[in-house]
Write a protein that binds this DNA or RNA. Structure first.
Length: 565
RNA sequence: GCCCUCGUAGUUUAACGGAUAAAAUAGGGGACUUCUAAUCCCUAGAUCGAGGUUCGAUUCCUCGCGAGGGCACCA
């Protein structure tokens, strides 16, 4: 994978002995500023006490006379104190000839870096809702992005399938369940669970029943254990159905239950090491030195907690995979909690080998601006959302292109509907809250997935009609318009790297949208099939690269393309 | 009370401390005998307030104002 900006940065920092951090090289904002720019002259001006314009000019002369950036850039300009670099045509032709090195995913090997991505992570017994959509879609996209960069990605769906939740589900089933276990659905469980928790207030004995279930769950062959297994399986069945529609997959679904042994061993271990101590009957890890409130790892009735389990999970993952990076794709609301968890883990392992990151995101809020909750009656099931999205897409697809065959129509509707939903979320900076709005969620207009998919379909149609004949590199000359498009395509690699390092798929979304907007302008102005050789071949080649770039970008967002729509 | 996230055109959103703050949508005007008009072109419109740091601030700091979230036995 070629990332020209880091090459330029390295050469400049080495040649002029500048700290690489002081000469950041970034993609230019406009064509007249070239392809890459650096503001290092400003930084150096401060250190040396001279004018940034003079420094920039000196650097430019030196770079040009030594041909420092050959073969990548053949032109350097100084403008407003910035150094602007222009990719050479020679380099663009080289990219064309070896296109796969620009766009193909890197292969992962034994030595590749490893990342564990913890995402989606729903609770069993409860229907997936819009609240799960962000983590699920973001996590899947991040997984694909890291895979593209050659990392070994371990996707783990950390199900909430244990503890009080599980106990209450079992107790509720025993009380209200009139169905054989095999026929129980998530909707049933949810109904029973809600009934159970709402009656708790007036009937405190229900809490005791649930506590008894937690004890009963310790017997591997108890009736409660059989019920639990069945409820868990039924939940997973439904989750998997929706994940399949969303094109989301996991390597593991260990869930909290997997760590029950480890959790129980952990607390005494923490106490022995002097990390945890008893306080007000409970066991806590104090985090005073970080200015954080303490984290509870055991309740005063000796039961374990969320944190205990997560701590054990972190230990388990560390031992099993020795990951370089571990991402927890979980909403903003849990910021404090994760900070506590990571600090506590830091105390446990004095030199952590894994970088732990809470990839947080804004909440989906209701029309009233408040958190969506079942209690407020603001429950919107994911299934309903997916259905509506697909239905609307189908209606519109039929209107727009009546020639589509039935099977094509169905494929288009799914790709467009689901794609729009994902794009709507992923194209936004992940920290911004989303106000839930049916219209917005399902919109197929403007800056949306179908705009990009449509651009792809247009190009596919041209390529179908064209029959490509490869022409030799020596005859290959980019005109201005073709060059502009090619330059944008060449940026793909660095865009992917940036989005990975910031855990921000929206960088890819913004990029592919820009690319398409460029393509559509090109499409309007420049004839392709009807142009003369050798231009025709050059244009076709660029169009092909562009369409592959769209496809690859959308793939990283978890969105599919089609040849007709 | 303390902590976290956020505040940008009418609306929904972009923007590594940098160049003329970018789009979509709604509004006004235009382009299909031409590779798919789910398209393109033109037009009007914005950084919550007050200070500070900086050559340069939507971005960093302080104080306000506003929205949302979190803060010991839920997950």
């Amino acid at each position: 994978m070629i990332t020209v900006s880091s090459i330029i940065q390295k050469k400049i920092s080495r040649t002029f002995r500048i700290d690489p951090n002081l000469c950041p090289v970034f993609l230019s904002e406009r064509p007249e500023f070239g392809d890459y720019s650096t503001n290092c002259a400003f930084v150096l001006a401060k250190e040396r006490g001279t004018s940034p314009f003079l420094i920039a000019e000196d650097l430019r002369k030196e770079i040009e006379s030594k041909k420092l950036l050959a073969p990548y850039c053949d032109r350097v300009e100084v403008k407003n104190g910035y150094l602007n670099f222009f990719l050479s045509d020679k380099f663009l032709v080289q990219c064309h000839a070896d296109w796969s090195s620009c766009i193909a995913p890197l292969k992962s090997t034994e030595k590749s870096k490893r990342v564990v991505i913890d995402f989606s992570s729903p609770n069993i017994g409860k229907t997936l809702s819009v609240a799960h959509i962000r983590s699920t879609i973001l996590g899947e996209s991040l997984s694909r992005i890291y895979e593209h960069l050659g990392w070994r990605v371990i996707r783990d769906n950390h199900l909430g399938d244990w503890g009080m939740l599980a106990a209450k589900l079992i107790a509720a089933y025993k009380l209200y369940g009139r169905k054989p276990l095999l026929r129980v659905t998530i909707a049933d469980m949810q109904k029973w669970y809600v009934r159970f928790t709402t009656s708790e207030k007036d009937h405190p004995e229900l809490i005791n029943r649930a506590k008894q279930e937690t004890v009963a769950l310790q017997g591997e062959n108890s009736e409660s254990m059989q019920i639990w297994k069945a409820l868990r399986t039924a939940s997973l069945r439904e989750f998997h159905r929706l994940y399949k529609i969303l094109e989301v997959r996991f390597d593991h679904e260990f869930g909290e239950s997997h760590y029950r042994e480890l959790s129980s061993q952990l607390v005494p271990q923490l106490v022995r090491k002097g990390i945890a101590k008893r306080s007000q009957g409970a066991i806590i890890v104090s985090l005073d030195e970080y200015g954080l409130p303490p984290i509870l790892v055991q309740k005063s009735d000796d039961a374990s907690l969320y944190a205990t389990n997560d701590f054990a999970t972190t230990v388990f993952r560390y031992k099993k995979w020795k990951p370089d990076l571990s991402l927890y794709v979980v909403a903003n609301e849990q910021s404090l909690y994760f900070e506590q968890l990571f600090r506590a883990f830091e105390k446990y392992r004095l030199s952590p080998g894994t970088k732990l990151v809470h990839v947080k995101f804004g909440m989906i809020r209701g029309a009233d601006g408040k958190k969506l909750s079942t209690r407020r009656g603001a429950f919107i099931s994911l299934e309903e959302l997916l259905q509506k999205a697909t239905q609307r897409a189908q209606r519109i697809a039929k209107k727009k292109n009546p020639l589509l065959k039935q099977n094509e129509l169905i494929r288009v509707a799914a790709a467009v509907g689901i794609g729009a939903l994902k794009y709507q979320d992923l194209s936004q900076n992940r920290n911004t809250d989303i106000m839930f709005d049916w219209e917005k969620m399902l919109s197929l207009q403007g800056n949306s997935a179908p705009y990009i998919q449509y651009t792809y379909a247009r190009l596919a149609s041209i390529l179908r009609k064209a029959r490509l004949k490869p022409i030799s590199s020596s005859k290959f000359v980019f005109g201005e318009e073709e060059g502009l498009l090619m330059r944008k395509c060449v940026q793909f690699g660095e865009v992917v790297e940036k989005s990975a390092s910031e855990y921000a798929p929206n960088i890819i979304a913004n990029y592919v949208y820009d690319l398409c907007s460029l393509i559509n302008g090109f499409y309007e102005r420049i004839p392709i099939l009807k142009s003369e050789e050798p231009q025709r071949s050059v244009r076709l080649a660029v169009i092909k690269h562009a369409s592959e770039t769209i496809k690859a970008s959308l793939y990283l967002l978890g969105i599919s393309v089609m040849n007709k729509m």
